[in-house]
């Protein structure tokens, strides 16, 4: 196999993977929203309630490092 072929296969596989990931992400976003697992739209509030005294939309605590998935 030449470098060129290797490059072509590598390119194809990686692109397919990235496309798959992107569509997976779209699916993930809308499903989480629909099943109520996570409301993405509430993050839009971060820009609006941005005084240092405002209540964070989702407080950052040092202990809770892991996400749900």
């Amino acid at each position: 196999m030449t470098v060129g072929e290797l490059q072509a296969y590598g390119y194809f596989i990686l692109t397919a993977l990235l496309v798959f990931l992107l569509y997976g992400y779209i699916f993930h976003l809308y499903r989480s929203q629909k099943t109520g697992k996570r409301d993405y739209e509430k993050y839009g509030r971060i820009a609006l309630d941005d005084d240092i005294t405002s209540e964070p939309v989702e407080p950052h605590t040092k202990k809770e490092k892991k996400g749900e998935a």
């Binding site: 990235l18 992400y25 993930h28 976003l29 996570r38 490092k65």
Partner: peptide
Amino acid sequence: MFSWLEKNPFFFAVGVFLVI
């Protein structure tokens, strides 16, 4: 997997870097 990426700035940055 995705929500984990969104919350972890380090792995998020690695992801962005790989893609670009």
